[in-house]
Structure formats: C-alpha cells, structure tokens
C-alpha cells in the first residue's frame, strides 16, 4: 500500500513542477508571438473586434467617474466616446475598462486596453514604457486666495506665508524659484485647505485643476494666479510601439481641433465643476498643440 502513496506523491509533485516550468519556459515563445502581434495592424484588429477598449478612471470626477446610474461620465469619457464614433462609426462601440492610477502602464503593456484616457500626465519616466500621443489638456500650478484679499501675482506673496502640500510640485517650485516666500507645509489636502480657511497663510498653491474645483465649491475664494510654473501636459497613451494607433489619435486630435471639440468636452464636463469664471484656455489643449 505504500506504493500508492508514493505514486500519488510523485504524481502531484510532477503536476506542480510542470506548472512551474511551464511558467518559465513560455518566455521563449513569447518573443515570437509579440513580433506577430506587432505585425498585425492594431486598427484592423480593433475594427474586427468591433469595439475599442479604452482605459478610464471610475472615481476621479470630473475627468472620469461613474454617475448615479452606473454610466461612465467625465471629460476623458466624453473624448473617448468621440474617438469610438470616428474610428468605428458609433460612440457606443467603446468598452470602458476601469483602471487605477497605479496600474495604468500595466494595462497598456499587457494589451488589456488599446488606449488610456485617464488624466495621464506625460512624464519622462512614463515615456519609456508607453507611447504618448499629442496632449489634449494641460495642468500647471495655481494660487488660490480669499476674494477679499486676492493674490493675483507671485510678487504679492513676498514676505508672506504661502500654504503648500509636502512633496508636491508646488513645494519644489516655490522652494527653488522663490526662496523669500515663507512656506507652510501640510501632508493632506484637507489640512492645507483648512489652514487657508483659518487664515494661517495668505494663499495656497496646488495643481490649478484641483483649485478650480475647490474654489467653485467654497465661495469667497478665487484662483488669482491660474497658471504658474512649468506646464505639464495630459495625453492619450498607447502601447509602446503601436505607431499605427498613435498616428491615428494624433490625426484625430488635429481634426477635432478644427471644430474646437475639446472645448465642447470642457463645456460638457469640466465647466460645471470649475464654474464660469475660469478661462478654458488654461486647461484645454486644442488640436494636440500647446500654444
């Protein structure tokens, strides 16, 4: 009877071992398969499938979120629907894959999505892993201050206290370029905004898109300086090496630029969140070219 036990033991171990080996061995065949995939036209593949898979956020209003009825909404989603309409003839021919900020790159690399439209900021580090198309949006720093004592230029801040968040671009920007402005640093967004309300500083610096939405909900505050510091752009991204789709997106953005489509997207999704007083030009990039 010991034999049965032995045979069983060897059998199970073999199964596990084969599983492990299969995991490692498959890498050799991967290279060939990847070449084949690259050779196949990506747009052709999307058309055959009849649906374009676009990665969007599901919990980052007003860029990508899910409304009360479970439908995807927002600035990115608005643009994604138009892409689907122009590529496949119908705006419903888009499959929204809900992505997380931390795994956006992986979704592209593993072919889980064709395109990412999830408020994806262009950085040098990310450029090595994915291919960015031309931008459709830009972000910069902004400065928000009480409407009663507005700060409209950085010069007004000299010798006064400015509230920033630790580790943000705002902190680095002011430390480097304006060492004579005293900074009050906080860890959390909520803390920083509370500090502004308590008048512990004369103004607060952060990403302008965030400030617009905040100032809209908190009456008595205005974004006096709407755009400051180095401009970051936000662009659609495709898998590294997918030049066909990349070129299509760039041409599409150019065509859409002629009818000011990104402004329409702004009016439909961002304007309700930012309010009338914000100039769309501080956020929107039309035709894929930053002016």
């Amino acid at each position: 009877m010991k034999n049965i036990k032995k045979i069983l033991a060897v059998f199970f171990s073999a199964v596990i071992l084969v599983g492990i080996l299969a995991g490692c061995g498959s890498k050799a065949t991967t290279e060939i398969k990847k070449d084949q995939a690259a050779a196949k036209s990506s747009i052709e593949e999307i058309k055959q499938r009849g649906k374009i898979k676009i990665g969007v956020f599901s919990d980052k209003p007003p860029f990508g979120f899910v409304d009360a009825n479970g439908k995807n909404q927002g600035f990115d989603v608005f643009i994604a629907k138009r892409f689907a309409k122009d590529l496949l003839g119908d705006e419903s021919k888009v499959e929204f894959v809900l992505v997380e900020a931390a795994s956006r790159v992986e979704f592209l690399q593993a072919n889980k999505v064709d395109l990412i439209l999830a408020n994806f900021t262009v950085t040098d580090e990310r450029k090595q892993k994915v291919d960015f198309a031309n931008p459709y949006m830009k972000v910069a720093l902004g400065v928000v201050s009480p409407s009663g004592a507005p700060i409209t230029s950085v010069d007004q801040l000299k010798g006064k206290k400015l509230i920033v968040n630790k580790g943000t671009t705002a902190e680095t920007f002011f430390t480097k370029n304006y060492p004579d402005i005293e900074l009050l640093k906080y860890d959390q967004n909520t803390e920083a905004f509370e500090a502004l309300k308590d008048k512990r500083g004369v103004a607060l610096a952060h990403d302008n898109t965030l400030l617009f939405a905040w100032a809209r909900e908190n009456t008595g505050y205005t974004v006096g300086v709407a755009s400051l510091g180095s401009l970051d752009t936000i662009a659609p991204a495709v898998k590294k090496g997918d030049t066909e789709l990349l070129n299509w997106v760039n041409t599409e953005l150019e065509t859409l630029g002629k009818e000011n489509f990104i402004h329409k997207a702004y009016d439909a999704s961002l304007k309700p969140a930012y309010g009338e007083s914000i100039d769309p030009e501080t956020v929107v990039v039309e035709g894929g070219k930053v002016k």
């Binding site: 995991g23 498959s26 890498k27 991967t30 398969k33 995939a37 992986e106 979704f107 690399q109 593993a110 072919n111 889980k112």
Partner: peptide
Amino acid sequence: FGVTNALD
C-alpha cells in the same frame, strides 16, 4: 498582466 501576456 504577466502570464496572460506571456502565453498570449
């Protein structure tokens, strides 16, 4: 992301 990609 890894295994599905490797096995296509």
